[in-house]
C-alpha cells in the first residue's frame, strides 16, 4: 500500500531538513514579519497559519498615551515563537547598532535582523553601512542576519564580517515584485557557506516557491501576507509554497528542452 500522508506532516519526521541559523534549528523555512496587520488578532491567526517559528519584530518607543496595544509580547508567546528583532528604519550603522543592542536587552535573543537603509524612496539597503554594523555586532556576539541587496560581493563581505545568515532581497521591501534577479540569488547561494534567506519583495505564493526553487535556505516576508485580502489564507499558501519550492529544489528539476518530448509511449499505437 502506498502511504497517503501529506508532505507537511510526514516529511519532517522521515526526512529532516531543518533550517539552521547560528546553531539554532527552526521548524520552518518560512520566516514572517508582524507588521502592517489590521489587528493583533489577525496577525496572530496569520502567523499561526504560516507555520513560521521565526517572526520579526521592531524596537520602538512605548506609546505613553497608549492609543493602542502595540506590545507584541501581549499577543505572541515567546515560548512558541522565536522573536527576531530587526533594525528597520535605521539609516546609519550607529543607529542600527543602537537598535540591535536595545533588541538584545529585552533578554529574549542575541539574534538580530540587521537592516540599514540607504535610500528612502526605494528602501534599498546601504551595503557599506550594513557591513560596518555587521562587523561591530558580530564582534559583540550577536547572531547577525543581514538584509542586503542581491549583489554577490556585498554578500561575501557580510559573510566575512561574521554574519550568521545573509538575506538578499527578491525586490524592494513591500513591492510585491517577486524575485527580479534569480540568477544573482543562485550565485549568492552557490558562493556562501552561511544560510541564504530571501528577504523582501515576495508578493504571492509562486514568488516564495520560486525563491526556494533557486536553492536558498529560507524566505522572509511580511507584506505579502499582511497585505492580502485574506491574510490567514495567504499565510497558509506561503507555508505550502515554501515547502513545495524546497521539495522541488531537493528533487532536482528536469532539464529545460527547446523541443517537445512525448510523455506517452510512441509504440503500441493502433493501426
Amino acid at each position: 500500500m502506498t502511504p497517503t500522508a501529506t508532505a507537511s506532516d510526514s516529511e519532517p519526521r522521515t526526512d529532516p531538513d531543518p533550517l539552521v541559523v547560528g546553531g539554532r534549528e527552526f521548524r520552518s523555512r518560512l520566516l514572517v514579519g508582524t507588521g502592517k496587520y489590521a489587528s493583533n488578532e489577525e496577525m496572530v491567526a496569520a502567523i499561526r497559519a504560516s507555520g513560521a517559528e521565526c517572526v520579526t519584530v521592531s524596537v520602538r518607543r512605548v506609546d505613553l498615551d497608549r492609543t493602542r496595544d502595540e506590545a507584541i509580547l501581549h499577543h505572541l508567546d515567546p515560548d512558541e515563537y522565536f522573536l527576531l528583532p530587526n533594525t528597520a528604519g535605521c539609516y546609519t550603522a550607529d543607529e542600527a547598532v543602537r537598535y540591535a543592542r536595545l533588541g538584545r536587552a529585552t533578554g529574549f535573543t542575541d539574534f538580530v535582523k540587521l537592516e540599514v537603509i540607504g535610500d528612502q524612496e526605494t528602501l534599498l539597503p546601504d551595503p557599506q553601512a550594513t557591513i560596518e554594523a555587521a562587523r561591530v555586532l558580530a564582534d559583540e556576539g550577536f547572531k547577525v542576519m543581514a538584509y542586503t541587496n542581491d549583489d554577490l560581493v556585498t554578500a561575501l563581505r557580510l559573510e566575512d564580517a561574521g554574519c550568521a545568515a545573509v538575506m538578499p532581497l527578491a525586490s524592494p521591501i513591500g513591492s510585491g515584485l517577486g524575485v527580479v534577479n534569480p540568477h544573482f540569488i543562485r550565485q549568492i547561494k552557490r558562493r556562501l557557506a552561511v544560510p541564504v534567506i530571501v528577504d523582501a519583495g515576495v508578493g504571492t505564493a509562486s514568488d516564495a516557491c520560486y525563491a526556494m526553487e533557486q536553492g536558498v535556505d529560507g524566505v522572509l516576508l511580511n507584506s505579502a501576507i499582511a497585505g492580502a485580502d485574506d491574510p490567514v489564507r495567504m499565510a497558509r499558501a506561503m507555508r505550502l509554497a515554501v515547502e513545495a519550492g524546497r521539495a522541488a529544489w531537493r528533487a532536482g528539476r528536469m532539464p529545460v528542452r527547446g523541443v517537445a518530448v512525448p510523455s506517452s509511449p510512441d509504440h503500441g499505437m493502433l493501426d
Partner: peptide
Amino acid sequence: IELVHFVGGG
C-alpha cells in the same frame, strides 16, 4: 530616557 519595547515589524 527612552522606554522601548517590541512592536510589529517586518
